[in-house]
Design a protein around this nucleic acid. Structure first.
Lengths: 136, 136
DNA sequence: GCTTGCTCCTCTAGCGACTAGAGGATGTAG
DNA sequence: CTACATCCTCTAGTCGCTAGAGGAGCAAGC
């Protein structure tokens, strides 16, 4: 029973070694067989799973969503709709995040429009933050 | 020596009670005097400071940035430039976050374009995530 | 065979910014 | 006097890792 050691898989997938072990710990990645010296030996299927996880994480999916997606990936007869819904929910979350960041940006930009020559006593940044009644 | 209890200040500022205590713990908010029964009694200056912190947090400033801003707010003779720089650094961070979220959004949206009628075996979401060599 | 240096192992603790809960004391209104 | 609300401290949990301690295994050179 052979396979690649964790370092090789880490390099191949771009996932750091402690992160791989962490995924195993939380049950996202199956525990691979070990060598005589107790080292993890990964087969291709598990490495692929790790690739899958990394892609999903890069796209900002949460661990629990990825757990769901992996379960679906494992049951090819399940309806595509289920995976699609996870993706769409995620898309909505991204949209909300972008919207709130954009309005935030406007506010911070307005705040940072500062002549920036005087002392703090006249600083717009501090002034805006100290303002009362600016509940939105 | 009077003052408002923590619950009243919490309502007035919109900061939850445990969060106020947390700010005190990490030295962001000064420890207020206590009543005979050991309860915190806040004066207006401290409540204002909490307002300041809340505004800054709402605008996404990190605790350490807020610590700096508060120090500046306390020294009105310091140059405005220092506060402005914190704000500008934050603005840059927001811009980077927005940019990365927007490109993310495009990718997830492309992924979620799914006919969504077949089984998982033909699902585009799963397919995209499982793809190899899609390093960007 | 022996040493060097790399990779690997497990385990615990830390990050940021809170939040939740236990278990108890205090304050107030009827 | 009795409810009940509010407060207190302390610990542990959240999320997704990351860092470090302290040790074992392994491959290559001498």
């Amino acid at each position: 029973m052979t396979g690649r050691p964790i370092g090789t898989v880490a390099k191949a997938t771009g996932v750091k070694i402690p992160t791989i072990r962490f995924y195993e710990n939380i049950g996202l990645l199956p525990a691979p067989p070990r060598s005589e010296g107790n080292r993890r030996l990964y087969d291709e299927a598990t490495a692929d799973r790790l690739h899958f996880i990394r892609h999903a994480r890069e796209l900002g999916f949460e661990i629990e969503s990825i757990r769901g997606l992996l379960r679906l990936a494992d049951s090819p007869e399940a309806p595509c709709h289920d995976a699609d819904e996870i993706a769409r929910t995620h898309l909505d979350a991204i949209d909300r995040k972008i919207a709130s960041l954009v309005s935030l940006r406007a506010e911070v930009a307005r705040m940072a429009e500062c002549a920036c020559t005087g002392p703090i006593a006249e600083c717009r940044v501090i002034e805006v933050l100290a303002e009362h009644g600016h509940e939105h």
